[in-house]
Design a protein around this nucleic acid. Structure first.
Lengths: 212, 212
DNA sequence: TAGATTGTTAATCGATTAACAATC
DNA sequence: TAGATTGTTAATCGATTAACAATC
């Protein structure tokens, strides 16, 4: 019923939206009211043409002769990305990476709220991280039902990720943020976003080897 | 003087190499000796044509009528990515994310060795994480010189990342793995790879909102 | 009104896929 | 040899850039 304007947007454009949002957020913090595509392009190291082309996929956010109002554009992109929904998040796997996420204040500024931490390890269950008590994974179904959780971050070893993905999916989670080095296909009705740290590091290794 | 064959490779191909490597690594662990582009394409959810096209940018790794030898292809991609170099790594910022990296055993399997941890916080300096003692940032120049460090992972708050990037660059680091939500341009002669966790989360939020 | 800058079309460029000849 | 599957060219598709008319 909403986002009717958001159809047939190319994946390449969508991938760039979060980055636009980050730059606009910084401009807003600096108290900058308006910006032209040319100025923004110099900041972001992309072409002004691409910026105008990208933003126009979602409607005319700018004004000829003026440019873009930073706050307006910022808020519109937030809506497109769904940041205004105030998504709730649980972290499954409370190792150091899970704890890092639980402590990362940046996410709440983007409208994400971490509401629960889970683990299978009895030693970890009951501990407190950033004012949240780590719960046992068995409590997950009841918790998700009572709290209406949107997203599950899986910070688990490779060997457990696939199984746990299926469990949270069965509990009704619709989005998985996966940190294990595996691609989680074949989970019906769930959208998965992967953070493959080792692939990023390999990329860096390649670039290091092939520097000018 | 080396990698003379690796010229004019498209960025799109290079971005996919680490993923090929991950799948081949899994096949190798499963004791699979040979694989065809068609089988691999079914595993990876890409087209067989793309796999053949991609791999051929680096030379003919396969054999008609047979397919690809998993171990050979695995090792060749490792070389292309520079994983055979045994890169050394330091972690700057020993918060929970930095500690998570220091404990992540996966990296050593890919030929990366974490040789040092650094922090500015006197409370953290002197602590031990995964058998490494956290050093003060002032020791960085001497450490890099004596150990010949290749990569610096920056797990720092936004406010400190830019300054620290410049410091490690001045110490002779040639590659930065950046975890702060900022793009580090303008550091001459250094290659930067960003892990923008919040952009990944925003992407997930978009996908959640626009699911079929 | 004149100047600036967007919105948008058209042109270019790059990346993916299809097809098949080469060859193991 | 026959069958399988690569390597590689050509065709298609998608994404980026250039250009400029529309308009604030």
């Amino acid at each position: 019923m909403e986002n009717t304007e958001t159809k047939d947007i190319s994946p390449a454009v969508i991938r760039r939206l979060p980055r636009y949002y980050r730059y606009l957020d910084a401009l807003l913090s600096d108290g900058i009211e308006r910006i032209s595509s040319t100025e923004l392009s110099e900041n972001m190291h992309v072409t002004a043409s691409q910026i105008r082309q990208d933003l126009n996929q979602f409607g005319g956010f700018g004004q000829q002769g003026y440019g873009y109002n930073v706050e307006y554009l910022h808020d519109e992109i937030a809506k497109i990305l769904g940041l205004d929904k105030g998504h709730t998040l649980i972290v499954v796997g409370t190792g150091r990476l899970g704890q890092a996420l639980a402590n990362y204040s940046h996410f709440s500024k983007l409208g994400f709220k971490i509401v629960g931490l889970f683990d299978v390890n009895e030693k970890v269950v009951g501990q407190t991280v950033n004012r949240l008590t780590v719960r046992h994974i068995d409590e997950l179904p009841a918790f998700i039902e009572s709290h209406g959780v949107d997203i599950a971050a899986l910070t688990l070893p490779l060997s457990e990720a696939e199984k746990m993905a299926r469990i949270v999916a069965d509990c009704g989670i619709k989005a998985i943020w996966n940190f294990a080095p595996v691609d989680l296909y074949s989970i019906e009705g769930v959208t998965v976003e992967n953070v493959h740290l080792s692939e990023s590091l390999m990329q860096l290794s390649y670039n290091l080897l092939n520097m000018k």
